[in-house]
Simulated assay, not measured.
Amino acid sequence: MRISSDKWTGKEVDKSGKFVRQKNRFDTPFGEEEGQLQVEAGRYRLLWAPVCPWAHRSIIVRKLLGLEDVISVGKADPKRPNVSRSDWAFTLDEGDVDPVLGIHYISEVYLNADPDYQGRFTVPALVDLKTKKVVNNDYFHLTLYFETAWKKYHKPGAPDLYPEELREEIDTLNDIIFREVNNGVYKAGFARSQEAYEEAYHTVFNRLDWLEERLADRRYLFGDKITESDVRLYVTLARFDVAYHNIFRVNKKRLRDYDNLWAYARDLYQTPGFGNTTDFAAIKKHYHIDCNPGNIHQIIAKGPDEEAWLLPHGREKLSENKI
């Protein structure tokens, strides 16, 4: 029998049944100041799983900025290993190990960094290849470091996803998107009381309604150009109909029931860096098996139709600028 997510998220539920996500243990920032992580091409490996929205965000930004040759990537199996801890396994490569780090479980690099680590072993995780230790798993800020501290390695013509003149507004919206959408669906899905579930449910859909209205007259969240906020919203929208709507019971509406959000999501999906890093098969496999303990026969839903993501979106009419 597989270990379901209910077992390893139980420690993150408070007395009222609300899911309270664990804090990141490895959050040292990148930069040139004393005590910060050194920015160096070829030194780090980004470990991710295509099912995880936080990890997917880092892969999208890495692609958009042209950091593929600067930061290497190791991809974990979308299904959790059958162990009692919240691990990820590298079974997609020869020998069932990451070909660069030589590890089978992501927990190995966490315990290299802190043998007493007691939290969940999460992705994304940036590992120092010199020490084989996790140095940063701060998913909330990692892409911001890619956009700022790693700027000297950006490809020519890379988009400015975090323009200085918009940073305060982007930070404010990012916080809202995280609390009420990105993490909001997990608060609904991992709730252990009816009250906690319904509170999260209403928060998610109130915010989606607000975003639907915001996107009525602008192509992206901040106008004509893609920003960090669009990346953050996209990763939840991409998983909404295939996983969150049914597995996490956020079923008031599907993404496809929102005219603007659905067209906006297709617009991003059809932009290089978004759709070509989105693995719907992996997403469904993880959520239907690992996050659905009642699915004892491990049946994975066939739909929704992925071809719909390629339908014309018409969003270019709102902007003549393209990424």
Rank of each mutant, 00 (worst) to 15 (best):
L173M: 13
E212S: 07
T203S: 10
R2E: 12
E147S: 12
S4P: 14
A196N: 07
Y197E: 04
K285A: 13
Y197M: 05
R62E: 01
N206D: 14
N112H: 12
V134I: 15
K130F: 04
H154G: 02
S16M: 13
Y145D: 08
Q36D: 12
C52D: 12
A216S: 13
N276C: 11
C291P: 03
E198T: 13
H297S: 08
A281V: 07
H56M: 08
G303R: 11
H202P: 01
I323L: 15
I226D: 00
L173H: 03
Y201A: 05
H56W: 10
D14N: 15
N260Q: 13
A238C: 07
I323M: 10
L173I: 08
T277G: 00
F121H: 10
S319H: 06
L166M: 12
G294E: 08
T203E: 09
R45F: 10
I296H: 05
F280Q: 11
R239K: 10
P29E: 04
L64M: 13
S229Q: 08
S4A: 09
G10R: 15
D138T: 02
A125H: 04
H288Y: 14
T203C: 08
C52W: 03
S58K: 03
W48K: 12
K63I: 06
F178N: 13
L215C: 01
A216D: 13
V97E: 06
D96C: 06
V13P: 03
N246K: 14
V109Y: 02
N295H: 02
W8A: 03
K155W: 03
G66S: 04
R21L: 06
E94A: 14
A243T: 07
R2P: 12
I296Q: 11
T227Y: 10
L67N: 05
P272N: 11
V250I: 12
Y139A: 15
A265V: 00
W8Y: 14
E213I: 10
D267E: 13
I283C: 04
P293N: 06
A41P: 00
A200G: 00
F240N: 09
S5H: 07
H288E: 13
Y201L: 13
I226E: 08
E68Y: 05
G66W: 00
R2A: 08
L318Y: 07
E168R: 12
Y234K: 02
F280Y: 07
G184K: 10
R120D: 00
V127E: 05
D98V: 09
N183D: 13
D93V: 02
K284R: 14
E169H: 13
V135G: 02
W150R: 03
Y105D: 00
D257P: 08
G314L: 11
K187I: 02
V231D: 03
A55H: 03
L47F: 11
V242L: 15
V70M: 06
E108P: 00
V127G: 03
D305T: 06
P156I: 00
L129E: 06
V235T: 15
N182A: 09
D14I: 12
L318G: 01
R239A: 04
D138G: 05
Y186G: 01
S84E: 15
I323V: 10
